[in-house]
């Protein structure tokens, strides 16, 4: 009974410093409407801009996250690369890739400082097998992260629920990569991100769904080092020059072909004169 009285008297004494209020505001039990909920266990995404918008300032350590993208290669791997680097370096668990559309290129992954000996590629033959493998890998607790590309036609809402429970049980972050049309369907995933290609080296992100917060759109992330436009211009001019040369060669070649067979010598001398 004593403690509330003392706090009230403290407030009444009007000697509350701003520091005290700040301390109170940071209390984990307090939630303000404009604030994201405090997720219990997260890892920084490596992008400060994105961390601001993610619950708990980072990717969830356990759970289901969906990435909605129109085409493979918009930057989904580079978005997850800092997390993958952190997980493969700090934990001895697998990072399982289930049914990847292409080959994860080992030299590039190693250049990003990802421990590729932790990578487990799984190629199931059917959708059912893929689902089973994903659930098994997530539930087992031996994968820190699972990435999966599933057949969209056969994926149902209840599957996402199962996957989410499995991921939580196994303390795994399960990442599903789905086409953008899937945004219209329901999903149990706690985090859904829509990715669209932006400027070269960057990606535009919309958070369609997140725990304890409204959807956010128009986050722009720089996922690879900025190239100077001048450098690009230089390279492009080099390329154009090369192309012009090639075209010239081609034209010369065509002219040679057009010329009659007995006149080959004449044309060759003629060309020597022009150049």
């Amino acid at each position: 009974m004593k403690t509330p009285e003392t706090t009230i008297s403290e407030i009444g004494s009007s000697e509350i410093s701003t520091a005290k209020i700040k301390k109170l505001l940071h209390h984990p039990d307090l939630w303000r409407a404009g604030q994201l909920t405090q997720a219990p266990d997260t890892l920084s995404s490596g992008f400060a801009v994105l961390d601001e918008h993610l619950p708990g300032c980072g990717w969830p350590r356990a759970g289901l996250a969906e990435f909605l993208l129109n085409t493979t290669g918009v930057g989904e791997l580079r978005l997850l690369a800092p997390l993958m680097r952190e997980l493969t370096r700090s934990e001895h668990r697998w990072v399982a890739w289930i049914n990847p559309p292409f080959i994860p290129y080992a030299p590039a992954l190693e250049a990003l400082d990802i421990d590729i000996s932790r990578i487990l590629l799984i190629h199931p033959k059917t959708h059912q097998e893929a689902l089973w493998a994903l659930e098994r890998a997530s539930r087992s607790g031996t994968c820190s992260m699972t990435l999966a590309w599933l057949d969209e036609q056969q994926l149902h809402l209840k599957d996402t629920r199962r996957l989410q429970l499995a991921a939580r049980q196994g303390h795994t972050l399960t990442c599903l990569f789905r086409p953008s049309e899937a945004a219209a369907t329901n999903s149990m995933a706690e985090l859904r991100l829509q990715m669209t290609p932006g400027e070269p080296g960057s990606v535009a992100l919309d958070i369609c769904k997140r725990r304890g917060g409204w959807p956010v759109s128009g986050i722009r992330l720089q996922i690879s080092e900025q190239r100077r436009p001048q450098e690009i211009r230089e390279q492009l001019s080099l390329w154009r020059e090369k192309k012009r040369e090639q075209r010239r060669d081609q034209r010369r070649h065509q002219r040679q072909l057009q010329a009659e067979v007995p006149l080959t010598e004449v044309s060759s001398t003629g060309s020597r004169v022009t150049h």
């Binding site: 080959i103 590729i116 000996s117 590629l121 799984i122 190629h123």
Partner: peptide, 8 residues
């Protein structure tokens, strides 16, 4: 053959 890892 369904499971493998990768190396450089």
């Amino acid at each position: 053959s369904a499971c493998c890892s990768i190396e450089v």
